[in-house]
Design a protein around this nucleic acid. Structure first.
Lengths: 166, 166
DNA sequence: CTCTTTGTTCAAATCTATTTGAACTCAAAA
DNA sequence: TTTTGAGTTCAAATAGATTTGAACAAAGAG
């Protein structure tokens, strides 16, 4: 059985549809399609998968697979499996919603929130330096509102993670 | 004063930075930059603004401004102001976080959730039709997990809106 | 009714982000 | 040490999304 048992066969209709499902999902999150394909195949595969498996079965380039896997590792959505038959690395998905969401928030959301708060501070300083007329009062009010949005977000995110806990 | 009081002047440094702030924001949400520019200018302008104002002050095309305003109206992020001096329509932003998030969830998130559930059902049917072996049990388990993710989302979203209430 | 002003539509142009593929690094095997 | 195979990197190609601009529609003014 030259490659009978090895999973280098073309995707089944079922697998393709699961993968498409995840492609839709990651698009909403603003992540590239290849990320969805890779995670989708890992998610629906009973056994861990190597980079070469991804390349063969998904028909994507090695570069894409490599970068996609890196992003997924950084997100904490994928991890190395124990297998390591020889020197090849196999991957398996993390399938706990709590951790997936947590990783996404930590990697994709929090950084933006932080840099946003810095910019807000700098804007407040600009308003502070303006001649104090009606318009600068209006500006100060608006910026105050943005600050409130930001703190709301900071309160809600941990709460969100809590509610998703298993 | 040909156009002295009319707000067709170039953007001040302050205004530009506020607008940039919103451009960053909408990018995270996967919305086009022009949406951020338009909402940003509306947000920081003490008075309602017409489509032509947006074109002049932001230096974008009429088409972009028109389409951007439509998206923002659909999201409920912007509404027509009472002013209507003559036949021109003026716009003002909705600045309540609760409503902004609510609109985003309703327009951008829920539709995807619904279509996702349909696809999930169809996938479950496929597994049901498979010869009942070890693999199909694994598949059923995975799909079950996806269903749980989906219901979690349906519980969390209204909760989220509640927490953002004023 | 016709002219003018306001706003919309959509195909084409442009811009941005993703994907590719070839060169490269690193480590294990021979 | 040299060779081989796995994985990474990044500039260039590609794909996909946004923006433009010109033609068009709608409605008040003359």
């Amino acid at each position: 059985m030259a490659d009978g048992d090895r999973s280098e066969k073309a995707l089944s209709d079922f697998e393709s549809q699961v993968i498409e499902f995840f492609c839709d999902g990651v698009k909403i999150l603003g992540l590239p399609k290849s990320i969805g394909e890779i995670y989708g195949l890992l998610f629906i595969s009973p056994d861990p998968i190597s980079l070469d498996d991804l390349v063969c079965r998904l028909g994507i380039s090695k570069g894409s697979a490599s970068q996609g896997l890196r992003s997924l590792r950084e997100l904490g959505a994928v991890r190395e499996a124990e297998v390591t038959s020889g020197r090849r690395v196999y991957y398996e998905p993390d399938v706990e919603l709590k951790r997936l969401v947590g990783g996404f928030i930590k990697e994709q959301v929090r950084p933006h929130l932080s840099s946003g708060e810095e910019k807000l501070d700098s804007l407040k300083k600009m308003v502070g330096d303006m001649p104090g007329d009606v318009r600068s009062d209006f500006y100060a009010g608006r910026l105050e509102r943005l600050s409130r949005w930001s703190s709301r977000a900071k309160v809600v995110l941990p709460l969100l993670q809590k509610f998703l806990g298993s």
